[in-house]
Nucleic acid binder design. Structure first.
Lengths: 371, 371
DNA sequence: GCCAGTTAAACAACAGCGTTTCCTAAGTGC
DNA sequence: GCACTTAGGAAACGCTGTTGTTTAACTGGC
């Protein structure tokens, strides 16, 4: 009824859900299984409370027993693990020319994968119909008894995450030029899927989520840098996506790295993206990598993050060049020994990074990830 | 006993404290007072729950009744407000050459203020003794019956907030050159103040806290940019300070804005700080302001923040020049109408910004601010 | 002046959370 | 075989916010 912004009061139900999510999150981080005693130690709750919480989760079918660990002089611990087939989520990557739909279970396994072309300049209604059809097809792979928690959609920005509305100014095709502007993607898709919960976010954000560890370090951060037609970043700070007030955070490509550099279409001068794309047009991946390294060093210094992940079509075209180039720039530009070396890696999920992260958009809250 | 990192389980006491903090936070944001009904509406809790919570807070003396609001056709609402004299906190700004100590009450009023010189090159033990003495003197202004919640210390980085340890590599004075390196400021000070809770943070961080609104907008952010002997920033994201893994976030001055620019002492090339300090040495505040504007535009685009605050000795020397210069750069470099204009202001607290924010370091958690 | 209508706030009984206390189960090692 | 150790459940408990009901206080029509 009253949907106020800002902080919210919590009642007993909220308390229960919070602790249950905590337990599920810890079990997700331990695929081989975790013990009740271990959970009590990690959460700070009493063993008795953990017993009740795991009892509820067992009764709901969210977790299952998984053997015992070795004895340490007494009764061995009973191991618990997520019941993978208890629930699933759909992750969607909607690009201008391609659609990827993924069905993943609680443990993140891919149960179904579809990748197919999308007609350029397709009308929004047709595109949503296509997505809905593919989601329905994906749910045929749903295990018996599994709940479908929702669908996450990752697509290019700008967009409004909270409202699930796109802000695409320049549609790709010849049809009505503002078809996609202010298009309520979330609600349109939910309406075609019988009210299934739908979450929409920027592709760079979901890709970052896909790389996120199950149990984030407090204060830790991760940046996913995406180089394709444009240059953007997804920021994961303190375990949660940082979207900013208008879901516009992550404009990595439009940082100025050359005060009086060449003009950019965005109106700025000396944007990293302009220089980087120019290098790409010359086919000079090494120069592009060096430039990205400059931007990454800026970002690492500003946010003191733990890890940098590289992805996107251009990066996947010459992965080692980017890995080496960015790493070298980081080392050269942040020589201070107090700054621990920030590891740079390639996106583990590759072309599926955005879709896998989109599914995590739905799964994350179940495991206590802040939204 | 077990102090694990990461997320923690919550019990009834935690639930109670959470809701109480929420209520206190909402009342802080309404100095004229807030009604029980309004609190119930804002928190989502039932009026009955609010009645119990406010009853407890009234009994503890944390809040008090403050008249009634106008009737809207029924019984008028009873207004509640913070009892300013219920508790206080000390805010300290420890600089190389100056010490500021502030005693503030629950509503943020300054009850005592001390500013005095510090001998350059002072030994850590002597400095801590000086700070402890001034804190004791400040607490003489403590209202009768008021609890002293703790002391927050803002000083230059690098330092480790979690451990309360300084990492100052280049001591100012002639005495033992590594006196201050790895100095456990928090524990040393707490030991001299009978275990009073002490929190240590970077000056830029506490200054940012000092500008923070009592009830942050979800997703909103604020950047405090500090120009003095160096150039740094404090980042307030989603209502909480973003410190990064090693309390090193906010290295605003060492972002590269000139890829092949002049070398910086930090090892990098083309750092914003080098260019900016060079302009300052020429006495060219306008050029320095323009450069800061470039960096601020980068920051705003990367983090999609709501507000920028400028402070520091150099800024206070020519406030309007910086205000205009940074505003102009922001407008020039982010012309996109979807990006709402990001307001730029001068630090309201002026020279007391760091100390006032240091007190908020202690007060914040009481009002539900995430640490 | 009085009474119906409206809104605020307290009282009482309640369900459900984690905690405490106690006890049983299931291993190890002498 | 038995003391010891560790895991985990049962029952009673304290305390949270919730639900249902009652009382307090003000407005406005007649």
């Amino acid at each position: 009824m009253t949907s106020h912004p800002g902080p919210t009061g919590t009642n007993l139900a909220g308390l229960r859900d919070h602790n249950a999510a905590l337990v599920l999150g810890l079990l997700r981080a331990a695929p081989e299984g975790g013990s009740r005693v271990g959970l009590a130690d990690r959460t700070g709750l009493t063993p008795q409370a953990i017993g009740k919480i795991t009892g509820r989760l067992l009764a709901e079918g969210m977790i299952e027993e998984a053997g015992q660990s070795a004895s340490t002089g007494g009764k061995p611990r009973t191991l618990l693990r997520l019941r993978a087939e208890a629930a699933c989520a759909v992750g969607v990557h909607l690009e201008r020319d391609e659609l990827t739909v993924l069905l993943v279970d609680l443990t993140g396994r891919h149960l179904h994968r579809h990748t197919g072309p999308v007609e350029e300049g397709i009308a929004p209604g047709d595109a949503v119909g296509l997505v809905a059809d593919e989601i329905r097809r994906a749910t045929e792979a749903l295990p018996a008894g599994a709940r479908l928690l929702g669908a996450g959609i990752g697509c290019r920005g700008p967009l409004d995450h909270a409202a699930g509305v796109l802000h695409w100014f320049t549609p790709a095709g010849p049809r009505g030029s503002s078809d996609w502007h202010h298009y309520p993607l979330r609600d349109e898709l939910a309406a075609r899927l019988d009210g299934l919960p739908v979450v929409v976010d920027k592709d760079t954000n979901t890709a970052a989520l896909g790389e996120a560890p199950a149990t984030p370090r407090p204060g830790g951060g991760l940046a996913y840098v995406h180089l394709a037609a444009g240059l953007g970043a997804g920021l994961l700070l303190d375990g949660a996506l940082h979207r900013g007030t208008r879901t516009n955070a992550g404009e990595f490509g439009h940082q100025t790295v050359q005060v009086d550099g060449p003009p950019c279409a965005c109106g700025n001068h000396g944007c990293l993206e302009v220089l980087c794309l120019a290098a790409l047009e010359r086919g000079d991946h090494a120069a592009a990598a060096r430039l990205i390294g400059v931007g990454v060093a800026n970002l690492v210094r500003l946010l003191d993050i733990d890890r940098v992940v590289l992805g996107g079509r251009a990066v996947l075209a010459a992965p080692d060049t980017y890995l080496d180039g960015v790493t070298a720039q980081l080392k050269a530009r942040i020589p201070d020994p107090e700054w621990q070396p920030v590891p740079v890696t390639l996106s583990a999920a590759g072309h599926l990074a955005v879709a896998a992260g989109a599914a995590e958009l739905v799964l994350g809250p179940l495991f206590g990830r802040r939204t």
